[in-house]
Amino acid sequence: MSVEIPYITKPRPDTGLTNGKLGVWLFLASEVMLFGAFFSSYAYLRAGNTWDDFAFGRPGIEIAADAHADEHADEHAEHATDDHHGDAHGEATAHGGHEGLSTPLQPSIPMATFNTIVLIASSVTVVLAWASLLLKNFGRFRLYWGITIAFAFVFLVVKYFEYCGKFAHGFYPKTSPLLGLYFLMTFLHVIHVIGGIIVNGYLLGPGSKMWKTDPERFTQRIEVAGLYWHFVDLVWIFLFPILYLLSG
């Protein structure tokens, strides 16, 4: 005997929502708060500071703007408790940022841009996969869903090379608070990508048998998994400019 769980495919009359959909949205709301805490920490660390402030003087860090090193040291001494000193030379490093290696993250901009395109494309294939199920085209669904998972792997490979580049230059989470947050935020995002691969992989493999037995429920699962994947894309859309492009 099995007990039937209500509102899996038929929406609850009062809310108009299925369990899965409401559940995933509440989960995503809690995820926003998780990432939000780190975005907030990052904003606090960055306010009035540049990457140079945190990188300078630490072992294993190469800063291109060596000429300004002494000035920076003086500023640190004079304004140890003064947060607004970053305004003036923050601008200077932002301008010079693209001319050479001035911050740890600037060399990663091409890789991060590529990964942005990969994730956005994977977001499109997710919704196309779902639309294919609505059109009862299971073959097309498998194609789009498979491409989505492949894109996720591409993202991870690029990320691997990005991290390797950081380690090769002696940039570790312990190197500075900002680098620590960079690794924390990007790796938390990587964990989400891996989680997505596991769930989406199951739905492509053994989980897809449900299409034959209960297509409506399977379509619902794909929609919910898709919502999660869009969220992973959404987080990256904000991480990309904040961490990489504004790393001056």
Partner: peptide, 12 residues
């Protein structure tokens, strides 16, 4: 979320 984002500014 907004409260979380305003926190750093408020502390500054």
């Amino acid at each position: 979320f907004l409260a979380l984002m305003i926190l750093p500014a408020a502390m500054q």
